[in-house]
Amino acid sequence: MHELSLAQNLLDQLLQLSKQHDAKIVTKATVIIGPFSGIVVESFAFGFNAIKQDHPPTATADLILETPAPEYICLDCNTINTGDAGTTNEHPKAVYETINDKLCSACGSSRLSPSGGTELILKQLEME
């Protein structure tokens, strides 16, 4: 449910940046959502697409979501192991639980822990 308030943050940013750059409309916004951010990608997109229509500069903005692959650090040798990436606009499922089936690629340890991946970043903006 907090996805809507985060989508509102994105909308505020887009309106502010389009004004700052004297642009009439935002055509595309690229956002990175980390796999351990606790943000549901589909809900975030749904929320944004619902509220963007309230403002002429964002009404037709395309939202591009990048979902980086989850990374797991080995607690024994500190190697970063990369998990499976999700498809476009969707995170891989069960990014935490899949740890149980994985072993460190370097030392074979089963002691892997989620690393980073909590980001929500406005990466790039296209305006006209």
């Binding site: 943050n9 940046l17 642009a23 929500l120 903006l125 296209e126």
Partner: peptide
Amino acid sequence: HSDSKIVEVNQSLLEA
């Protein structure tokens, strides 16, 4: 290339 511009923002939406 009309008036299109691309801006690299790279800012967290949780920054505020």
